[in-house]
Amino acid sequence: MRRHPLGWGPALGPPPSFRSSEEHPVLEDFFTSLLVLVCVGVLAFAVLTVKKLYQGQR
């Protein structure tokens, strides 16, 4: 069991040698792509909403 760096008991979380991006680059790319798609979707919805709001004022 690892010790906390300041001596407060056991350290929580993965050890410092844990490298998520080196072990699962495909998984990281998948979630990055998913995040980009969600951002594009939210932006498109916001643009459509503003467009519809201005159309209703005419």
Rank of each mutant, 00 (worst) to 15 (best):
G13F: 04
P14E: 03
P14Q: 06
P14W: 00
P14R: 06
P15V: 04
S17W: 13
F18M: 03
R19V: 05
R19G: 04
R19T: 06
S20P: 02
S21I: 04
S21C: 07
E22K: 03
E22L: 11
E23H: 05
H24Y: 10
P25Y: 09
P25A: 03
P25W: 06
V26W: 01
V26Q: 11
V26E: 05
L27C: 05
L27P: 02
L27G: 06
E28Q: 10
D29F: 09
F30G: 04
F30P: 00
F31W: 15
T32Y: 00
T32P: 00
T32K: 08
S33D: 09
S33R: 15
L35K: 13
L35E: 14
V36G: 10
V36D: 12
L37Q: 10
L37E: 15
V38H: 10
V38W: 08
V38M: 08
V38S: 07
C39M: 14
V40Q: 10
G41R: 06
V42G: 05
V42L: 15
V42R: 05
V42N: 12
L43D: 06
L43F: 13
A44E: 09
F45D: 02
F45E: 02
F45K: 01
F45H: 06
A46M: 05
A46I: 03
V47D: 01
V47G: 07
L48V: 07
T49P: 02
T49M: 03
V50G: 02
V50P: 00
V50E: 00
V50I: 13
